[in-house]
Lab assay of single mutants.
Amino acid sequence: NKEHILAQKEVLTPIEYEHYVKHLFDIGEITKELYIELSS
């Protein structure tokens, strides 16, 4: 869920976080809207 993803932002580097969010989007775990929101 969104809270879990945002928690990852605390422990990952910005680049790792971007890759993580992109991966979730690629596998269909999150919607495009959520992907855009989380990567901003």
Rank of each mutant, 00 (worst) to 15 (best):
N1P: 09
N1F: 15
N1M: 14
N1H: 12
N1Y: 14
N1D: 15
K2I: 10
K2T: 14
K2Y: 12
K2G: 05
K2P: 11
K2Q: 09
E3T: 09
E3K: 09
E3M: 08
E3D: 13
E3W: 05
E3H: 14
H4W: 05
H4Q: 13
H4A: 10
H4S: 14
I5H: 06
I5V: 09
I5M: 06
I5W: 06
I5A: 04
I5P: 02
I5L: 07
I5T: 03
I5D: 01
L6V: 08
L6D: 03
L6E: 08
L6P: 02
L6W: 04
L6N: 05
A7F: 03
A7S: 10
A7M: 09
A7W: 02
A7D: 06
A7H: 06
A7T: 08
Q8Y: 05
Q8S: 08
Q8R: 09
Q8T: 10
Q8P: 02
Q8G: 03
Q8H: 07
Q8E: 06
K9W: 03
K9Q: 09
E10W: 02
E10F: 03
V11I: 13
V11M: 14
V11K: 14
V11H: 11
V11T: 15
V11R: 14
L12D: 01
L12K: 07
L12R: 05
L12M: 15
T13A: 10
T13V: 05
T13F: 06
T13D: 14
T13N: 09
T13W: 04
P14M: 09
P14Y: 07
P14L: 13
P14F: 07
P14I: 12
P14W: 08
I15F: 12
I15W: 11
I15G: 14
I15E: 14
E16I: 03
E16H: 04
E16R: 03
E16W: 03
E16A: 09
Y17M: 03
Y17V: 01
Y17H: 03
Y17E: 00
E18Y: 12
E18G: 06
E18R: 06
E18N: 07
H19A: 14
H19Y: 15
H19I: 14
H19T: 11
H19W: 13
Y20G: 01
Y20Q: 02
Y20P: 00
Y20L: 14
Y20V: 03
Y20K: 02
V21A: 02
V21D: 00
V21S: 00
V21R: 00
V21L: 12
V21E: 01
K22Q: 11
K22P: 00
H23I: 04
H23K: 12
H23P: 00
H23E: 15
H23G: 07
H23W: 11
H23R: 08
L24G: 01
L24W: 03
L24A: 02
L24V: 03
L24F: 03
L24I: 04
F25H: 05
F25L: 12
F25V: 03
D26A: 10
I27K: 13
I27E: 11
I27T: 13
G28M: 05
G28Q: 05
E29R: 06
E29F: 10
E29I: 13
I30Y: 00
I30H: 00
I30W: 00
T31R: 04
T31W: 04
T31Y: 03
T31V: 05
T31L: 05
T31K: 05
T31H: 06
K32A: 11
K32T: 12
E33M: 06
E33G: 08
E33N: 09
E33V: 06
L34E: 12
L34N: 05
L34F: 08
L34T: 13
L34Y: 07
L34H: 06
Y35D: 00
Y35P: 00
Y35E: 02
I36T: 09
I36N: 11
I36G: 12
E37I: 05
E37P: 00
E37T: 05
E37L: 06
E37D: 15
E37A: 08
L38A: 03
L38G: 00
L38H: 01
S39Q: 13
S39Y: 04
S39R: 10
S39A: 14
S40Y: 10
S40D: 11
S40T: 14
